[in-house]
Amino acid sequence: MINRAIYLGETFCSYISINNSSTLEVRDVVIKAEIQTDKQRILLLDTSKSPVESIRAGGRYDFIVEHDVKELGAHTLVCTALYSDGEGERKYLPQFFKFIVSNPLSVRTKVRVVKEITFLEACIENHTKSNLYMDQVEFEPSQNWSATMLKADGPHSDYNAQSREIFKPPVLIRSGGGIHNYLYQLKMLSHGSSSPVKVQGSNVLGKLQITWRTNLGEPGRLQTQQILGTTITSKEIELNVVEVPSVVGIDKPFLLKLKLTNQTDKEQGPFEIWLSQNDSDEEKVVMINGLRIMALAPVEAFGSTDFHLNLIATKLGVQRITGITVFDKLEKITYDSLPDLEIFVDQD
């Protein structure tokens, strides 16, 4: 049994010695060493093609094996020797060394969205009996995102700030439950357009790459599973207000500037724009001035088009522009109406 704690992400290193305790020389020694887990067998050493020629009586043959630990749970180091004894008889000697691989860290994440910006908080807790010096806790975003680590501003000089960027001292997380929090700001990437493209399935934010060293400088490395954010539903067409007058005159035409954006990789349209009717019997105060349906040409992939809607208000005071609707003539799809807008209607 191997007594030392073995942790996921470390490099397992074992010094193994084969001793000839007989009074005669042994020859043609074939040595094998492998790691066995519940899922696989990993060969670490095999001298079948070049056996150890001989080990004298009382002599030994030493070797070192290494293995990057990537599985939790029970492991067995199996060492075998096949040799010819002093009388020329082939003999087989197996040895088994069992050990358990534990998790050195726990990583807890929280995702929050504030005004189109996504913040990821990662809390790392040390479960080992050794202090861990974090060389790197880097967030690798998926292809739809960019990431920036946010750090608290401390009272330090420009010289110290430059030195920290060059040397980047490791973060200490103390043994037996020490924790450290990391904060990242994530932004969705735009694909050739001024606004981010919300791709279906782009709730996959990315993963953390974590590297550390122990008190004795032994390295470790872990990678988290993909971290998920808020599920994003595909929005192929988006209508936004560019400019709305703060004050308009009663019974006088005014222009509302809008932008229609195609957030897909193919041409969409042509479109029709209109003001939908209220479900209630209430009379509409702001109406289209002229033709009730406005036609728009197709919009290219990841493109947008600006247009003006000619409106007229028939009642004084604060009024709402409601029910601005987009209809795709080719796909026969009616998109959600634009949220209500408020304008102030004056006498002149």
Rank of each mutant, 00 (worst) to 15 (best):
I35W: 02
Q36G: 15
K91P: 03
W274K: 14
I343N: 04
Y184D: 03
G229I: 02
T109Y: 05
L341W: 06
V114F: 12
A147F: 04
L120M: 12
H67L: 03
V285A: 05
G220R: 07
D28Y: 08
L228H: 15
K235R: 12
K235T: 13
G88P: 03
A161C: 04
L132Y: 01
V107K: 02
E71H: 08
G86F: 10
Y61L: 08
V197Y: 03
V345M: 07
D158G: 03
M1K: 12
R213H: 12
R56G: 04
S21H: 07
S48F: 06
Q263A: 13
K98D: 15
D85K: 07
F119A: 00
L24Y: 06
T264P: 06
F271G: 01
I210C: 04
N262T: 00
V242L: 15
I210M: 12
L150M: 14
E238I: 09
E138M: 04
V30A: 01
E236K: 13
R60N: 15
P155M: 04
D68Y: 04
K98E: 10
Y159D: 05
L275I: 15
Q225E: 10
T23H: 08
E66M: 06
L311D: 07
D265S: 09
E10H: 13
G176E: 14
G9W: 09
L216W: 08
I124L: 15
I55L: 03
R320E: 13
V248K: 05
S146V: 11
E66I: 02
E25M: 11
I227F: 02
H127E: 10
Y184G: 03
Y61P: 06
L43G: 10
Q162L: 12
A5Y: 08
P94I: 04
M188Q: 15
E53L: 09
T118K: 01
V107G: 02
Y15I: 04
V242I: 11
N310L: 06
F99C: 12
F139H: 11
G229V: 03
P270S: 02
L93Y: 15
I232F: 02
D68E: 07
K266P: 00
K315I: 00
Q223K: 14
D153V: 05
K187F: 04
E272T: 14
G86V: 07
R56E: 15
W212C: 00
C13G: 05
L8T: 14
V113S: 07
W145N: 03
R4H: 11
K110V: 07
V78R: 11
N144K: 07
K207G: 09
P155D: 11
Y15N: 14
M149K: 13
E89M: 15
